[in-house]
Nucleic acid binder design. Structure first.
Lengths: 149, 149
DNA sequence: GTCCATGCAAATGATTTGCAGTATC
DNA sequence: GATACTGCAAATCATTTGCATGGAC
């Protein structure tokens, strides 16, 4: 969240990359939908409004770039598309404790904040010697609305 | 684990499906590699040894079928292949508390048993009204071997 | 002016599907 | 013997790549 255009320009320059209209527009589109998990096609559609000449290949290349800079994160809900959401670079605090609740019935995805996994991570480090840096948690079940029925 | 050929035949019949050599061989291949997370191509290669005439399309169709019967589970490690492991139908106890540790350095995947998520699931039910049925947890970090370096 | 970035079209590659032949029940 | 299953080849579709042009610095 908390996307700042000037900060983004600075990050690009620091990495020896050029500031282009396409890059600004793609990140702006993603940051303007903080509750969505957009696919490349969806981002393409959004971005075309402000920048009709953009090509799908550029969207893919930009997404890849933003992902490498940790400005956005990839998520896979196994629906045939890789999806993206704002990443941890702008807002460090929040990311690590962020899970996804996926309704098996209607497909809705809800984000959920929690830090209960720290205990699990410690236990893993103790028993297996594996040092946990990041995690991805998907919880499948039935959302409130679908349970009513 | 604990794969039993007769039990599998019974499950197929109960679901109005035919017992074929191909179906037996595919499930047998997956169950014979309990520590692996095999892709369709890897299963195809394994299965060709016992059944050289099998086609890749049949492997895909069989995988889909086994997945629907919950005899195998799909996992996605974002390496470009969907992968499969033995599912919960044969061995109910173990599955729900099974996570994956993925080494960001060497790519190795380690399975880990734990039930610490129950507390988290209760908390979610309480605060969001979402009923959690299953979960998928991927933990990224550095494995023991890679940490030594 | 030098390169990096873009747009377009063509390529890639995992997975799916159509169809005629084959095996199971 | 009917019909579900299989093998093969062709189709699909998200994503990637090659290349000539355009834009950032």
């Amino acid at each position: 969240m908390k996307y700042d255009r000037e900060q983004f320009k600075r990050i690009l320059k620091e990495n020896g990359l050029k500031v282009t209209r396409q890059r600004l527009v793609v990140l702006e589109a993603i940051s303007s939908c903080p509750e969505e998990h957009l696919s490349a096609d969806e981002i393409f559609a959004l971005v075309k409004v402000d920048c009709p000449e953009i090509g799908l290949a550029t969207v893919y290349r930009t997404i890849q770039l933003l992902s490498e800079l940790h400005l956005i994160d990839r998520i896979n809900f196994d629906d045939g598309y890789v999806r993206y959401e704002m990443g941890s670079a702008f807002d460090r605090e929040q990311k690590h404790h962020h899970h996804h609740l996926i309704c098996s019935n209607c497909g809705k995805v809800i984000s959920f904040q929690d830090d209960l996994l720290e205990e699990l991570e410690e236990k893993i480090a103790r028993t297996t010697g594996f040092e946990v840096v990041d995690h991805e948690v998907k919880l499948y079940g039935h959302c409130k609305d679908c349970r009513r029925k």
